[in-house]
């Protein structure tokens, strides 16, 4: 389903974030990309989400080579992903429900259908009682769950998350993990970049360990 071959990413400043990275991820797999800060996890996340293009190599997702993809086709590809960003990228001038409605507005879903799906997504992450909440009143864990709800509301087949438990306490992190497990159980391919080894040890996923831009370990 996802096939990366000889991926490299060198930034203009000369920093080589990824070097010759290759892997395959099958449909429905749960994969954790681990490694220390600066190992290349976020860069890999950005390449998989087509936010950036690799310097060399190829990434094929569902038969589409992201490297060869036209710029105008990228937004449509991104809609097939659920993306959870490291800093969540929530809109603090909108309430929880409006944040969830944004991806469906982009997809052009009718208002009634969008509202129904948004409420269902909020329910899945345990925020159904906070739909009108101002985001500043939400805890870190709630904000992260809201970000996950926004990522899954369009029913993506692949969920990509970058450091979803950063700055969360153990209980909140466990809650997030439970949510991911639930999505994985219904067949969503899950790719999570994290530096939290404790979190990884709670589940038994496939682990891709990065170090200095290279894959050091690929274990199940």
């Amino acid at each position: 389903m996802i096939s990366a071959r000889a991926l490299s990413k060198r930034y203009p400043q000369g920093i080589e974030a990824l070097r010759d990275v290759s892997f395959d991820i099958e449909t429905g797999e749960m994969v954790f990309i681990t490694g220390r800060s600066g190992a290349g996890k976020t860069t890999l996340f950005r390449l998989l989400a087509a936010i950036e293009r690799p310097t060399s190599g190829s990434i094929v997702v569902n038969g589409q080579n992201l490297v060869a993809l036209r710029e105008s086709a990228i937004p449509f590809l991104r809609r097939s992903f659920g993306l959870v960003f490291q800093n969540q990228k929530l809109l603090f001038d909108r309430n929880a429900l409006d944040n969830i409605l944004l991806p469906m507005k982009i997809a052009g879903l009718p208002a009634n259908e969008a509202l129904r799906r948004a409420r269902a997504a909020l329910d899945k992450v345990g925020l159904s009682n906070r739909e009108k909440a101002d985001l500043l009143t939400l805890s870190g864990g709630e904000q992260q769950r809201l970000a996950i709800a926004r990522a899954v509301v369009n029913r993506p087949s692949i969920l990509l998350a970058d450091e979803p438990t950063t700055n969360l306490d153990a209980d909140s992190a466990a809650g997030i993990l439970e949510i991911f497990r639930a999505f994985h159980q219904v067949g969503v391919t899950l790719i999570v970049a994290t530096h939290d080894p404790q979190w990884v040890s709670c589940v038994s996923p496939r682990i891709l360990r990065l170090d200095q831009g290279r894959i050091q370990e690929d274990v199940e």
């Binding site: 105008s72 937004p75 991104r78 960003f85 990228k89 001038d93 944004l102 991806p103 982009i106 990522a151």
Partner: peptide, 16 residues
């Protein structure tokens, strides 16, 4: 700017 950035990250086209 924030809203535009987020929208583009999650699949908004330039036309949108």
């Amino acid at each position: 700017a924030d809203e535009i950035e987020v929208a583009r990250l999650i699949g908004a086209t330039n036309a949108f």
